[in-house]
């Protein structure tokens, strides 16, 4: 499978104390470990098991993920910021790989 590619929607600017919406999506099969291949053998589990978002190093939102989350996991959540800075997004794969992305936001 191709390297999972994160896609993130964050406003470029926000007012101090404004609640902004953040939408994230990452391409990933999220193989549940329940499916069988053509020979009837179980396909081993391989999912993204953790997602987190931090702002200037402070946690904003995090999620523990189980196989019951759909392929290409999508998360929509909010943030209320009081200064400009960078939002960092991290996804952790079952195999230990880490996919990350970063977005700057101007808060005035």
């Amino acid at each position: 499978m191709a390297t999972p590619k994160p896609r993130i929607k964050v406003p470029k600017t926000a007012k101090v104390g404004e609640v902004i919406a953040i939408k994230t999506l990452i391409s990933h099969d999220m193989e549940s470990g329940q499916r069988k291949d053509k020979e009837g053998k179980l396909i081993p589990r391989k999912i993204i098991n953790k997602f987190s978002c931090t702002f200037n190093g402070q946690p904003v939102f995090a999620c523990d993920i189980e196989p019951a989350i759909s392929a290409n996991p999508y998360f929509e959540f909010n943030a209320r910021l009081s200064e400009s800075g960078s939002l960092k997004f991290t996804w952790v794969d079952d195999d230990g790989s880490i996919y990350a992305d970063e977005h700057q936001i101007e808060v005035a």
Partner: peptide, 12 residues
């Protein structure tokens, strides 16, 4: 920092 306690996702 979350501002509001709300989240959306897609599940199986």
């Amino acid at each position: 920092l979350s501002g509001v306690a709300a989240a959306t996702t897609r599940m199986r």
